[in-house]
Design a protein around this nucleic acid. Structure first.
Length: 314
DNA sequence: ATTTGTGTTGAC
DNA sequence: TCAACACAAATG
């Protein structure tokens, strides 16, 4: 169609220009991807329709990111539901990655949509995979009993002895690594894992102790900032940023020991690749960790997990 | 001031 | 079912 999108910085409007004749109009450029709509500021929105209702999936800088978002949503809203009703054993469109299918299945539609809108889907999926693989996934996955599968998995994970449990991860933002000496802890994680008692008024906080990967102890002030309505690691944080040379986009991981001691751990690593895995528009995905082969054998890291190996009865 | 996302409409 | 468009609600 030879349309070029032109952002006009002075008039702040988008115009599409036909290359052939140079004529311009004030129309927004259409996306070549389904479920992707242009925004007047040059960004892209993603949406999907469910029973004639529009479900808004957020706005994105990249058209492709928006398209990918639509794909994931359609997998959740269309794919899983459709397949579930027909046959739970024939993992059709998403058999390329059993783990992501499990992830989608273990979260509600609202949760998935929320992740997509907040651009945190890839990260949450990564966390899920981490837990799965560190928790003897092959034993946990009985892939043949439909609805009991996830319960089985969670039961197993609960009793599986692990040194540490992953609490959450956060991608460092500019302000997290800036001079402000504080890292914002996403509210849902803060309230879930770092509960501050009501008695700890605003302004005041508690000291949280963390151990890093080399066993070094870190103490951070932790408090609720009512002004920004957010939970933050503050006092001492900047030392960690400096020593670890933490950069924007790096992933900070918070863990807790499973035993009685409930020690906290902090670790960081450079930003990893885009690991969302599903939703390439027309491309192919590389070898996934879990695959369903032609003979019906499901392998995760080469281990056959297609037979139900653990206590999966209710 | 900007951006997000809803209300609405009409094409397919 | 879907995208296009206008613009209100939300956010910074």
């Amino acid at each position: 169609m030879d349309l070029i999108s032109c952002w006009n910085a002075s008039t702040r409007d988008y115009s599409t220009m036909n290359q052939a004749n140079g004529a311009s109009s004030n129309k927004l450029p259409s996306s070549r991807y389904k479920g992707v709509v242009p925004q007047s500021n040059g960004r892209w929105g993603a949406q999907i329709y469910e029973k004639s209702n529009r479900v808004w999936l957020g706005t994105f800088y990249d058209e492709e990111k928006a398209a990918k978002t639509y794909d994931i949503a359609s997998l959740k809203i269309r794919g899983l539901d459709a397949i579930t009703q027909i046959s739970r054993n024939q993992m059709k469109p998403y058999e390329c990655d059993v783990t992501e299918a499990l992830f989608l299945e273990s979260h509600s539609k609202a949760e998935i949509v929320d992740m997509l809108r907040k651009h945190s889907y890839a990260n949450e999926l990564e966390m899920y995979k981490h837990k799965l693989y560190n928790g003897c996934a092959a034993c946990a996955l009985g892939l043949d009993d439909g609805g009991k599968r996830m319960k089985c998995y969670h039961d197993f994970m609960d009793t599986c002895s692990r040194e540490r449990e992953l609490l959450f991860e956060k991608v460092a933002t500019p302000s997290d690594v800036g001079r402000l000496n504080r890292m914002v802890i996403p509210k849902r994680y803060a309230e879930k894992h770092f509960q501050v008692h009501q008695s700890v008024g605003f302004g005041k906080g508690v000291l949280l102790k963390f151990e890093d990967e080399v066993g070094k102890l870190w103490r951070f002030g932790y408090c609720y900032w009512s002004s920004s309505q957010s939970y933050v690691l503050s006092k001492g944080w900047i030392r960690f940023v400096k020593e670890k040379k933490l950069k924007v986009g790096d992933v900070v991981r918070f863990e807790r020991s499973v035993g009685e001691d409930k020690k906290l751990f902090i670790d960081c690593r450079s930003r990893n690749l885009d690991i969302s895995g599903i939703g390439e528009i027309h491309g192919t995905v590389g070898d996934p960790p879990a695959t369903v082969q032609d003979d019906g054998v499901v392998r995760l890291f080469g281990v056959n997990i297609s037979r139900k190996p653990v206590h999966c009865r209710e």
